[in-house]
């Protein structure tokens, strides 16, 4: 299986598979958080179901490994690609019509996503799962507020009462959106599927569908 590391398409496969797993996690995370919109109680029940339970910690470790893999490969690929461009850069270069900005700036967008991700971890994961793993039942925040580690709803209420946090999260979602539109599309391209949604311009519309490229199969 060394081709996964040694070949360009193998490396691309690792990026796309790890990316897809992260997207699935996001969907899972999203579906839990939706509960908070309807009922604080329901949400806190979910929080306590996860908490510092072994399966949740194990899943978190796996997730961390995948994020590390995705990040490491992204760095590696970006460095390789920079090298492949040669030592002289173009003095004038123009983005061709129909090429999305996101597709050409995945690493930078990815870094922005990472930055906010760390903020997000420090606000929620650190005070909830991590504090609980350390054996505490309550987390003390920087302004002295204390909140129970399984009271997710209270954390949400606390943080999103600050305007800057709301703005920061909106920026994060935007970056994430750009990253995912190209990422998901690209991942499907990789598996040999052909995406049909108007054009190949890398913009994701709600009505995309997959068409397997049967044309490539032997008959």
């Amino acid at each position: 299986m060394s081709w996964l590391i040694n070949s360009s398409i193998g490396r691309k496969l690792i990026m796309s598979v790890s990316g897809i797993v992260l997207v699935l996690f996001l969907l899972f995370h999203l579906s839990m958080n939706v509960a908070a919109v309807f009922s604080a109680e329901a949400y806190n029940t979910i929080c306590s179901l996860l908490g510092s339970n072994w399966y949740a910690v194990a899943a978190t470790a796996v997730l961390a490994a995948i994020i590390a893999l995705h990040f490491t490969y992204a760095t590696l690929l970006t460095l390789q690609n920079r090298k492949a461009r040669g030592s002289n850069r173009y003095t004038v270069s123009a983005r061709p019509k129909g090429v999305s900005w996101a597709s050409q700036n995945m690493f930078v967008i990815g870094l922005i996503v990472c930055g906010f991700f760390i903020l997000h971890l420090s606000q929620f994961w650190y005070n909830m799962m991590f504090t609980e793993v350390l054996g505490h039942e309550e987390a003390t925040l920087c302004d002295g507020t204390t909140i129970g580690t399984t009271d997710g709803a209270a954390f949400i209420e606390y943080y999103f009462s600050h305007l800057w946090v709301v703005v920061a999260y909106l920026i994060w979602y935007t970056a994430l959106w750009f990253h995912l539109t190209h990422g998901i599309w690209s991942a499907f391209k990789l598996s040999g599927g052909t995406m049909r949604y108007g054009s190949n311009d890398g913009k994701l519309s709600p009505t995309f569908w997959l068409r397997s490229s049967s044309s490539a199969s032997p008959e």
Binding site: S8, A84, Q104, M106, L190, G192, N200, G202
Partner: peptide
């Protein structure tokens, strides 16, 4: 040569309009 990240610039600038569907086929 570098790693393809499906930006699609090649297809746009190709003087013969070769489609990146070919890249999907190669991946497969």
């Amino acid at each position: 040569f570098g790693n393809c990240t499906n930006t699609g610039a090649c297809e746009q600038e190709c003087p013969k309009s070769i489609s990146i569907t070919n890249i999907a086929r190669l991946n497969r």
